[in-house]
């Protein structure tokens, strides 16, 4: 399902220190246009739990969270 969606932008946040993945995701979403898709790659479970809660405030909606490796996830977020 999620593989059919083509992301407009990608943020590779693997290895980054808390809360950089959250902050970068929110900043990017703020400047995106409606309908564009953001792909965020992360490697920390806390980010996986926090990012979905934080994107709503900046007009984003999580489409999918996919595990792509050991403690590695790919989150797709759509700008509403």
């Amino acid at each position: 399902m999620s593989n059919e969606v083509k992301p407009t932008y990608t943020l590779d946040e693997r290895g980054e220190v808390c809360p950089v993945p959250d902050v970068d995701t929110r900043r990017k979403l703020k400047e995106m246009k409606s309908g564009e898709i953001l792909e965020v790659l992360i490697d920390y479970a806390l980010s996986k739990e926090r990012i979905p809660a934080g994107v709503k405030e900046v007009g984003g909606e999580v489409i999918s969270i996919e595990e792509i490796g050991p403690s590695e996830w790919r989150i797709l977020i759509k700008k509403l």
């Binding site: 693997r14 290895g15 490697d43 479970a45 050991p70």
Partner: peptide, 14 residues
């Protein structure tokens, strides 16, 4: 919990 992983930042300034 399969959450162990060596995590290294890309930017050395970190």
């Amino acid at each position: 919990a399969k959450e162990f992983r060596l995590r290294v930042p890309k930017d050395p300034k970190t």
